[in-house]
Amino acid sequence: MKLEEAKILISDDSILARKQLKDVISDYGTPTFIETSNGQDAIDSYKTEKPDLVFLDIVMPVKDGNAAVREIREYDSKAEIIIVSSVGTQAQLRAAIEAGAKDFIQKPLHREQIHNIIVSRFEGR
């Protein structure tokens, strides 16, 4: 799939973190971005928008990222979900993978990590 045709859901309670992630991804193409700021909204948006890739923060209000991963994966077992978190402990990593996340990125974001995720899933411009 071309990145231009993709829908990417970014869920993070920080508007800055969402912007930084969008800025990096936009260097490779212009997908449609869907943004939410808590786990429950991420689940709801997933069901209505059916995005091709999801970036989820763990520490979020209302419902945290791991709970959101579980619910999204229950709804769609093929959901491609990447956890992006400042808390990269082994326990968190394990919990995210057990919940069904495909990858785990620790903040602050490094361009190469995003690069690898994008180019392994989408064709560029």
Partner: peptide, 16 residues
């Protein structure tokens, strides 16, 4: 959000 992000980054690293 930048101020919150700094706190989040610092506290996250502390937990790690």
């Amino acid at each position: 959000a930048s101020i919150e992000d700094f706190a989040n980054l610092h506290n996250g690293l502390y937990c790690v």
